[in-house]
């Protein structure tokens, strides 16, 4: 009995998630915006959860399962590399350099921005309270 309930709950979550995909596909088709329907679906899904339109227990099992195994669904794309062998052979050094340089810069800049931004805010609040 418990098991059947779990399976039904899993299917329900799956139907809800794909439902969001179809709704956002229709919206994108009508609006002609350059945004992937999957991303719009994700935004609408988060919004619906926060607003309480969808209950957490309807989608919890499915969402947790899908997120846990996310990397497995990406692996087939990596297999596709064999098709683009020549392009990668030609550009591999550029790709590596760009990854190293931009990722390092990005970690430094975001880290410093938030660290000092939060410090500044705290000082600002303290001064306000002092006055």
């Amino acid at each position: 009995m418990e098991k059947i309930k779990l399976i039904l709950n899993f299917i329900l979550g799956f139907i809800i998630l794909t439902g969001f995909y179809f709704v956002s596909s229709v919206i994108i088709k009508f609006l002609h915006v350059p945004l992937s329907p999957v991303i719009l679906g994700l935004i609408l899904f988060a919004f619906a959860l926060v607003e309480g339109i969808i209950k957490e227990e309807w989608i919890k099992t499915t969402s947790e399962f899908l997120i846990k195994n996310m990397a497995m669904f990406i692996v087939p794309f990596m297999g596709g590399l064999v098709v683009y062998k020549h392009m990668i052979m030609k550009n591999w050094l550029v790709i590596l350099v760009v990854i190293f340089v931009t990722t390092t810069l990005m970690i430094i800049i975001t880290g410093l921005f938030v660290e000092y931004g939060l410090k500044f805010l705290r000082l600002h609040k303290m001064r306000k309270n002092h006055d």
């Binding site: 679906g41 919004f47 957490e56 997120i67 596709g80």
Partner: peptide, 24 residues
């Protein structure tokens, strides 16, 4: 290879939408 592996990438659609859950 992709004849059947493409079904795995198909699951990526609901899986990506499920990323809304950690935001909530």
């Amino acid at each position: 290879y992709n004849e059947s592996a493409c079904y795995l990438t198909l699951i990526l659609i609901p899986a990506t939408i499920a990323l809304g859950y950690p935001i909530y």
